[in-house]
Structures are given as structure tokens and as C-alpha cells.
Design a protein around this nucleic acid. Structure first.
Lengths: 217, 217, 217, 217
DNA sequence: AATGAATGAGCCTTCATTCAT
DNA sequence: GATGAATGAAGGCTCATTCAT
């Protein structure tokens, strides 16, 4: 019952934002009533926070499934980016909730205690790769894991978050399967180039060219 | 008077979104009345669209000031990214309006006819650089200007749009002046790497390391 | 509570029409608030429709009380007209609501499903009289019950509906008790004349002269 | 220009009533502006009154064209009814304005001075017929001209005014050309029967049966 | 005489929320 | 614990009308 409400609420909040969502609309798609929503969650904002928290847990939980053990640092970094890129594409509701949080200056996210551990883990993954990369002499020294995470996030997030305006302005080509594959490769290439000591290694890791057809050399 | 309303409305819509904004709040910050807003703009949504259009015109107008003539293609690309990165930072209201548009699936932006020309111009700039880069044998062949624009936008946009959640989750360090300088350099390096035929050239164009402290060698 | 609202709303709608009525004015005469009206009825138009429906049910219900069993057909017809004439006079609000409906091209009445049965019953009464009258050789053959109902309605309805303009233009005499009695007798005479095979029978059924003073011989 | 406004205003007031009509809607269909309407007519209610007055003048003017001279009284009465019946059918806007006036308790009509003469003339016609009919020994004595006028009006007016609700409730058959012909004949028959001393004369004046098919005897 | 720009008042409606059991 | 009925507060919007030239 609570789960039912949360499921519908997530969809509505993701679609319409915090103020744009109406409790009545959520109730209408639920087996319960409007009254029950207040009974279980107190008020609209608390429901929204519950949705946000649950969604975050789920998504960050999904990230834990990624196993980079055994991969060389540069391949691991590549895998991490590709995973994040795909992961964000598969979770548009999560992306939208984060967009909405940013509209609200992360006001609700700041209240969420459970986040700290999850975020540290996310950075931990990048940090580990960086350390290994430096130790192996592959990466430039003094790479900031947080900056690297920022760069990975930027492209993976923007790709989903701004699809509507970007394709309105510049056409839908980038959001077809081929377009997405292209963007993903460009992103990998950019990230690796920003990190590798010897840029020549890039070509062995990602043979294709960014923004170009497969044929390029 | 219309300008006064638009100015206040932009601030409110950027801050609170379409549904979150109350006409009354706009009126209160204006020398005119709530009634006047409807007189000039018809309804809330039309006012929002007028704000969006005006803001877009202003921002894209600002971009026109950038002069890349005379620069070699790779330096031009670097300059374009740096300009975009800074430009987005200087226009947080515009960024927020675009975020809000994405929440609304670009519903209003799709109506704006005047955009087409401006968007083509934006792509035109990148296209020109690409052509010159290829002609000079500097860039990889078959670079997609739109994909390149996407990559530039991704980092410049995300940097402003997701500041609230990112700094909530991973600390405010990246959003200090030094942090921003670092991110900008990483971004430049990534973009160039994704494009240059000879990655070794990167170091001559951007000597500093990505994600690293200034000291790195 | 709903009944209270309906009662007040009927009076207001009958007096001022659909657009002329203000929800606030209804609320003010009620023990409840304006908000409650929307809670119970959704919107102004639905409230109006509820009023119309209820009023129709009441009025047509009142008609059911008329018992014509046992009367000869011509006497039954006379009784039906007299009843309708009096009945309309007693229900000026109903008359006004029908006037208002006609202004609105019967837009709302067309939605009312429950009417069909009631209307068929109304025609049924006339039909029965017609059949009996024909069978008894009293009425002209091929009398149309609907046309007869139209004629009865015309005079009974106009008498109430157009009282204001008629008495403004031609004086109030016809709307005193005597005037009304006169009109009623004229109407009966007209209706019977339009139906009876042998017009001479009229005088036995309604001895007084139409449009004349009682004294006439 | 004033004429243009009046023409449009009549149509709008007739269609939507006094409160239902919006000055802006009138202006939109005019070559002039909303402002001009106030300039020429002062306010909404005065414009409505001007419309009402003009419409009345026009319609009552049309009635003057009827020439009953030379006809025997009963034929004249028949002609008057038929003319009125047809005349009302041809002037639905006028009918609607009178309906609206009745909704407003004839408040505006009461102000109209010019009416008195026109109304007296209308009654004058009936009066003349009555006098002639009595003098000729055809009509019952003491026929009230006003009651007779009421009866003529009732059927002619109701026929147009209540068409929407009547056909909604009882079908459209009565408002086809044949249906209307039938009703007109019924009405004539009823009126004559209410007046003639010798009802047998009816059949010579109107051979057809009321509410029946043409064949009846 | 003629008019574009401006507006005060108030209307219908919606929203999250609480009452009372 | 669970719920149907009720509601205060305010929101977007419309209307006839007047200001100012």
C-alpha cells in the first residue's frame, strides 16, 4: 500500500515536479485514497522526500552491481563511464528527480542522511581506479577523483536530462541508438584523454573516432 | 513596463518553475498590478514563453560576441569551450529555464520559431572549426559537429545545473574558483582529446593536468 | 446540505440565469461555503444541471398526481389543460429554468437521460385521451398527440413566461385572478375546438365565452 | 458604425443574453473597437436597450405591412394569426430578445416610451376585427381583444421560443415544414373556435384537421 | 469626434490539508 | 490502524469600464 503510493508518486513527481504534482492525481492512480497519502506520509513534501530517498537507494544499489576487479585502470575507467552512461539512460525517472532537486537547490537531498555512505562509495570507486592508474604509471599524477566523477556524471546526466531541449534544437539524430553509441564513444575518448599520461593509448582502448563514422582511422 | 514584468518573471520562473511561480508574487515585485500581467501577456504560460524566448535571445546574442577568426582550429575549439563554460556560469537563470523546459519536455521551446536560426548559427560555429581542423589535418576525419556541441554543452551545462546536488553529495570544493578552473581545464582536455588526430598536441594547448592540482608535472 | 444548496441555487438560477448567477451569492444564502458547492457539484454548470434535473423531476412528479380515469375524453382533455395551466402558474421557477434552457439551446437538457421516460409519460396521457376520443367518435380522426401537447403547453407556458413583457405592453388586467380565469377558459375552448368533431359540444363543456365577461349569453 | 455595432450586438445579445454577452466579443466582430462601444452607447446595459428598441421598431414595423382591409372578420382573424405565426418564425432574434427581457422581468422594456403607440396599434388591429365580427353577428359578444391577442401570441411565440426544449423532449417532427404547417392550422382552428358564435363555420375557413394528416374529413 | 492603453473588482476554481469517527 | 466528509486560503483569470490624449 505504501509501496503502491510511492510507485505512483515517483512517476508523478518525476513527470511534473514537486509543485506540478497534485496529490489527487497520485491518489487517483492508487488503490487507496488521497486521505491515506496524508495518513502515511504526513504531507506532500514528505512524500516527495520519501520518493527521492527510495529512488536514490534503488539507483545507487544498481550501481553496486558493477564489478571492475581485475581490469586494468584505464579499462576500468572506460567500463565505469560506459556503465554510468547506460545506467542513467535506463533510469530517466531518477534523472528527473535529481533535476527537480536541483531546481529546489537540493533542499530535500540535504536532509537525507543515508546518502553520505552511498556517495562515498561512488567516489571510492573512482578513487581506487585513479590510485591504481597512477601506481601503474598510466594516469597523470594528481588526478582528482571528484573531478573525474564530475566529468563522467556531466555527460551521462546531460545526455538524459537535456534530451528534450537538445533534440528540439538540434534534431533527434543523437538520440537514436547509433547516435547514442557515438556519444558514448566520444565521452569515453574524452575522459581517457583527460587522464592518461600517454594519449596514444586511447586508440587501443577505443578504436572508433568520436563524432565520426566507424570507418575513421 | 513589459520589460519590468519580464525581468521579474524571469527571476521567479527560474527560481520556482512554471507551476511554482505565482503571478501575484511577480506583480508584487513590479510597479504594475497582477491585472497588467494578463493584459500584456494573456496568461501565465504565455508569460513564461515570453521569458524563455527573451532569455534565449539574450544568451544566444551574447554568444555572437565570441570571435574565433584567425585562431587555429584546435585553439578555436579550446576558446569555444572555455567561452561556453564561462558563459553558462554567468547565466544561471538561463540554465534553470532550460532545466525547467526539460522537465516540461521542451513543450514551450518547440513553439519558438525564432530559435531555429540561432541554433543553426551555434552549430555553424562548431562546424566551421571542424572543417578547418580536418582541412588542416589536425582533427580526426568525420567529426560530428552536433556531437561535439553536445559534449561542450554537457559539461558547461551540468556544471551549473547540477551544482546544488553535486556539491551536496560530494562537497563544495569543485565550485570554488580553483575548482572551477580545474574543471574547465579537464573539460578542454577531454574535448580536444576526442577530436585531435595527434593527442600529443593536447599538452601544448593545455599544459595543466586534468583533475589534478596545479603543481603536477 | 446538498438539498439546501440546490434549493438556493434553483432560486438564483431561475432569477438570474446561468451566467448571471454568482456562486458566491448562492453560498451566502446557504449554511455552507462557496467551497462546499464545488465539493458537491464540481462546477457551476454541473450545479445548474443538477438544479434543472431536480426541478424537472419535481414538476413532472406533480403532474403524475393528475387522475383522469373515468372522465369522458373531452372532459379529460379539458381537465388536463386546466391542470397544466394551473400547474405552470404554480411553478414559475420551473418555467424560468426552461426559458433559460431555451436561451442555451437546450444544451444541458439534452444531457439529461432521465427525462426520456417522463416525457413519454406526458405524451402518453394525451395519447390515451386522443385514442379514447377517437374511439368514442368524439374527436376528429388523426389528431396528433404531440401537436395537442404543444398547444396545451404553448398557452400554459406563455402565460407564465411572458407575463412580464405582456403586462408591460398590454396592461396587467390579464394577470389578475379574473384575467387568468378568462384566459384559462379561452384556452380550453380553443383546444377543444381544435379537436372535437362536433364543435357544438364545446358549449356544454365550457359554458362561458372566451375573451368575454361572464355575463355574455 | 453605430449601425454596425448594433447589428453585431443584437446577434450576440439574442444568442447569449444580457449577462452572457461580452462586450469584447461584440467588438471583435465589429470594424471598431471595444472602446467605441462605450463611446457611443455609454455602457453594456444601454447598448442592450438600444438593441432592444431597434429590434422592436423593426419587427413592429414589419407587422404594419399586413393589410386586412376588405376581409370578412373571421378571415381577417385567420390571416392575422397566420401572419403572426409566420412573422415570429422569421424573427427568431426578436423572440429571443423578448425571452431575455422576460428573464429580466421586462426591466428594460418598461423604460421604452416608443412602445406604447406600437402596442396600441397591435391591439387596435385585433379590436377592429372583434368589433366587425360582433357587428356582423359572427363572433361571440364580449370578446376581449387583449385576450385574443394573448392567445395568438402564445402559440406564435412558444413555437419559436421553446423549440429547443420541445424538440429535445418530444422530437423534431413538429419543427419540419410539415409539422409547422400542421401546428399553424391547429392554432387557427383553436383561435376561431374560441371566438365564433357558430363553430360550424370553422370547417369552411380551415378545412384541414388539427394534429391530423391532410386526409381527415 | 475618436481612440489605444490601462485597470479595480470580483469570479470560478483548485490546492493541500484536517475533522470526526 | 484506517477512512469519508469537509474545508480555508489562495490562485489564475475575466469583466466592464475609465484614463489620457
Amino acid at each position: 500500500m505504501k509501496a503502491d503510493i510511492l510507485r505512483v508518486a515517483r512517476s508523478e513527481f518525476a513527470r511534473r515536479g514537486l509543485t506540478g504534482t497534485r496529490i489527487e492525481d497520485i491518489a487517483a492512480q492508487t488503490t487507496t485514497s488521497k486521505r491515506m497519502i496524508f495518513y502515511y506520509f504526513g504531507d506532500k513534501e514528505s512524500l516527495y522526500e520519501a520518493v527521492l530517498e527510495e529512488c536514490y537507494a534503488e539507483v545507487r544499489g544498481g550501481e553496486a552491481e558493477l564489478d571492475l576487479e581485475g581490469l586494468p585502470p584505464d579499462a576500468a575507467l572506460k567500463a565505469l563511464l560506459e556503465f554510468t552512461f547506460d545506467h542513467h539512460r535506463r533510469n530517466p525517472e531518477f534523472i528527473r528527480l535529481v533535476m527537480i532537486e536541483n531546481i529546489h537547490e537540493a533542499r530535500h537531498m540535504k536532509k537525507m542522511q543515508a546518502l553520505a555512505a552511498k556517495n562515498e562509495r561512488a567516489i571510492g570507486v573512482v578513487e581506487k581506479i585513479c590510485r591504481a592508474g597512477c601506481a601503474a604509471g598510466l594516469f597523470l599524477p594528481d588526478i582528482s577523483p571528484v573531478a573525474l566523477h564530475w566529468q563522467i556524471s556531466a555527460m551521462s546526466f546531460f545526455n538524459v536530462a537535456n534530451q528534450a531541449t537538445f533534440s528540439t534544437n538540434f534534431g533527434p539524430a543523437l538520440f537514436t541508438e547509433e547516435g547514442q553509441a557515438l556519444l558514448r564513444r566520444s565521452a569515453v575518448r574524452g575522459i581517457l584523454a583527460a587522464v592518461l599520461k600517454d594519449p596514444a593509448r586511447i586508440d587501443s582502448l577505443c578504436p572508433a573516432t568520436p563524432g565520426g563514422s566507424e570507418s575513421a582511422g
